[in-house]
Design a protein around this nucleic acid. Structure first.
Lengths: 367, 367
DNA sequence: GTGAAAGCGCTAACAA
DNA sequence: TTGTTAGCGCTTTCAC
């Protein structure tokens, strides 16, 4: 590859000025047919592709939004190929008799579905999306990199330090997903955790008659915190016993789920139900319970929150509160574009509704 | 938002030159401690975020790769919220007794899982990823836009016209995913369709004794074509009847699946098995069969190809050939970065292995 | 260790 | 309709 052709090259070749070349691409109708054709021909022959950086620089806008994400994988399963199976000697294709659902535990997760919504809405609006994330050891540098090349930025909670975020927010609109407003310069999109938890709890208490309920989850995110608060509020209203602390479930790892179950076994009796802060945690708990021979839901009910795909595949299927993840993503883009259209408006917060999805793990029959 | 601060502002505020500001960010070690601090302070106070476009322009590289995708949704289900369910009057949360697996039919699909691989590998390597795609009516313009702002581009097959692709390939390395090399200037990542189909067919013929096999699928992609060719080759080798044409299944839509089943009903008897070009098509066919009261696999076996998530959720679970989608994505990035490292090397093609996944729809017991 | 200055490739007035 | 001419904000020699 030799030096990439520029407007100058095209202009020279077509025998026009660079402005005409630029016009030919941006405002074709304002150029005479003949010149337009010769410019296009020159561009074609030269293999000219307008440099987006230069355009963005000159024009002031990039036509792209940014999303900073996070690789939430924790106890992630081995990737393709590491699993067992016999290799067909003839073809080299692997034949396996069964496969686990493990991959589903890691994809798609909450972030993936939200991201999908962001993408779809970006494309619909003619924007490109620049996504970045912390890989293993990935530099935090990347956020700033992205922030510098987009018109607006969305971030998942706890992926970027607040000082950095506020810094960026002075330059472009920023939406913090799934984190309520804390009186800052950021925009927010959240879901109604309280209503979801209330409805779920009401179902557990009313329909299944559960009384001794425990909450499982770390309280590291405000979603989890909000859910725990709502959990306690419902118990209080129902005059039931209110656990002071959640059973801490560090990031939904297998190890911590095992510890929780071990702890439960020290109690007089199993609780009636375990209300988990997230599906991810719920699934890990169910696994750990099964390992101890405790059956869900007959011996103890378990519920999740979020509505990730894995919950539908699990056995028993997981009762949960589903967030409208795609809509969360779309709303995020909406807000960003809106802020872009009229800057120096105050930041906004949008809250989306959730819905309870009853499946097997709460004691309902078929999911 | 007032004018965004630039190097000049920071330089002025810190009482240094712009070169020093730049150095402070790129080569902190080459700047005296005191100046470094004052520059950083100025940057902080001003809310300075380096403009990525300007950087890319001056520096020549963007540190981002591009992925052009496609919204493959066809008979897509209504998005969240349109489904039935009763609203809890108290909380506004929806309570529903059951939920379908429809969402899974549209996400994650093949492209989504490959994209995930691309993302993960990009991040691991410290690159950002710019994704674009044709939304409904989305401009094809977007490809060029993206191509102009990244160091390398990956595209899914049939998303971008070849003249455009070759044009772009003169400027930056391009990987065409899932399309074998056709003697062009593009790089390619494919999977071993032939071996996969052979192994699958051998299973159907040997283990289940199926003889009268039909192929379902349009032949619009080279993946499908390769699978059909391999399908025929196996039948030939086994001296079985070879259908000349596939049962054309336009893009796996419900309508065309229905038409296929209607066609099958005109035959003397059901075939033993339907080998489908993709999972997506297989699932639609199974649905259509069920609607006519034909049971899979007892009355007719059905197999897919790809290994998308929905195949595991379907009833019966879908026997298929799984592509290592994440690996396809990672390999794509690998190639791109490699081409970047040494340009003017010849384009490469990489083929990845597949594996057969036996589940219920072929007649095997538990999936 | 720091500054001056020349671009990087394109857009958008403003002229012609 | 087309050309001239400033920048857009940053990187990077090359002097000092």
């Amino acid at each position: 590859m030799k030096k990439t052709p520029t407007v100058y090259d095209v202009a020279a070749r077509a025998g026009v000025s660079i402005a005409t070349v630029s016009f030919t691409f941006r405002r074709p109708e304002r150029v005479r047919d003949s010149t337009r054709e010769s410019v296009r021909a020159a561009a074609r022959e030269l293999g000219y592709v307008p440099n987006g950086n230069a355009r963005g620089l000159a024009h002031g806008r990039t036509g792209a939004l940014g999303l900073y994400s996070f690789d939430y994988l924790l106890d992630s399963p081995a990737p393709d190929g590491a699993s067992s199976g016999s290799v067909d000697p003839e073809t080299g294709a692997m034949i396996i008799g069964e496969d686990s659902n493990d991959d589903f535990r890691s994809f798609p997760l909450y972030v993936d579905e939200v991201q999908r919504g962001v993408e779809l809405e970006c494309w619909r609006q003619g924007y490109a999306l620049m996504v970045g994330g912390r890989g293993q050891g990935g530099s935090e540098q990347l956020v700033a990199d992205i922030a510098g090349r987009v018109d607006g930025l969305a971030v998942f909670p706890r992926t970027v330090p607040y000082d950095v975020l506020h810094h960026i927010a002075r330059r472009i609109p920023v939406v913090e997903i799934s984190e309520p407003s804390h009186d800052d310069r950021l925009n927010h999109v959240t879901v109604n955790n309280v209503a979801g938890m209330q409805a779920l709890m009401e179902h557990l208490i009313t329909a299944h008659g559960l009384r001794d309920l425990l909450f499982v989850g770390d309280l590291e995110t405000s979603d989890s915190q909000a859910r725990f608060d709502a959990f306690r509020a419902v118990l209080r209203a129902a005059s039931l016993h209110i656990p002071r602390q959640p059973l801490s479930h560090r990031a939904g790892t297998k190890r911590s789920a095992t510890a929780i179950v071990a702890h439960l076994l020290t109690r007089q009796r199993m609780p009636d139900g375990l209300v988990c802060a997230t599906d991810h945690e719920a699934l890990a708990v169910i696994d750990a319970l099964r390992e101890q021979g405790i059956e869900v839901p007959s011996q103890v009910a378990v519920t999740g929150f979020d509505g990730i795909a894995a919950g539908r595949l699990a056995r028993p299927t997981l009762t949960t509160v589903r967030q409208p993840m795609e809509q969360v993503g779309r709303a995020t883009v909406d807000i960003l574009l809106d802020r872009l259209a009229r800057p120096d408006e105050a930041p906004v917060s949008r809250e989306l509704p959730v819905r309870v999805v009853l499946r097997e793990s709460c004691g309902c029959r078929q999911g």
